[in-house]
Amino acid sequence: MALAELMRIISLCQSVRLKGLDPFEVDVRRKLEVLRRYLPKWKAIDELLLDAEAFNELSTVIKLQGDWLKRQATMLYVDPELVEAKLKLLEPVELARCLLAAWRPLMALEQVTPQRLQEAIDYWNTLPPLRERVRLEEVAETSPGTVSFSELLRFKFISTAELQGRIEELRRQLEERSRSGKVDYWDFVVQDTYEKSVERAYYVAFMISQGLATLELDPLSEEVYLRPLEGKAAAASSVPIAFTYERWRERRSRGHGRGG
């Protein structure tokens, strides 16, 4: 309740200050009494800060009251309502005459100096012709292509440490699953989404090229199996496996990759 009272005082003072209201609308003496009454109750730092802010705002209002009085006493005081009434009653032509009587327009001379002219001539002489300035830059056209891992590494889309971490993680998973028998390649690679599956196949290819795993092909059933290796590079041979969306859907529908 008391804090709300402080907030009200601050808000009142701020609106007088910002909206140009009559500062005598604020009963400063009464507001100061309120602050004095509540001061012994404040214990928390936030309460004391709020009290200080209210006090500061009231002192600003006192300054505004001083300025207001000074202005009224020295020069311009005319009742604003009277001025407003006059402004409403006067014809536009008479209002224009009032302004003209109080108006002393600024005088300015715009003149080109010999020095500025010389600068302009120098600029003109060194300026290349328009046809040279607007000549279009020749751009080499390149057809769309694919980004390799080495390029991804070069462009810092992926770091070597991150790549190695993922490969290590895959190798751990492969070792765990190979304890209970042969690991089907598709079962290992296929995931919930096509994107995740392609990414996993990419890392598996890296794992194989680093000699951490190898592929075994069953020539009769044409099934492909993955087997972990002890970090020794396998004999150089390449096994192309087409990883199309259709193939992923087919393998997914056959239940591959549901085991995690």
């Binding site: 311009l76 001025v83 006059k86 009032c98 302004l99 009587a101 109080a102 600024l106």
Partner: peptide
């Protein structure tokens, strides 16, 4: 800034208040 440089504020108010109003 331009009004402050060009317009005499006191004179403007005196002019407005001094004008006769035809009702």
């Amino acid at each position: 800034w331009k009004a402050r440089a060009e317009i005499d504020s006191r004179l403007l108010l005196r002019q407005v208040m001094g004008k006769e109003v035809r009702l």
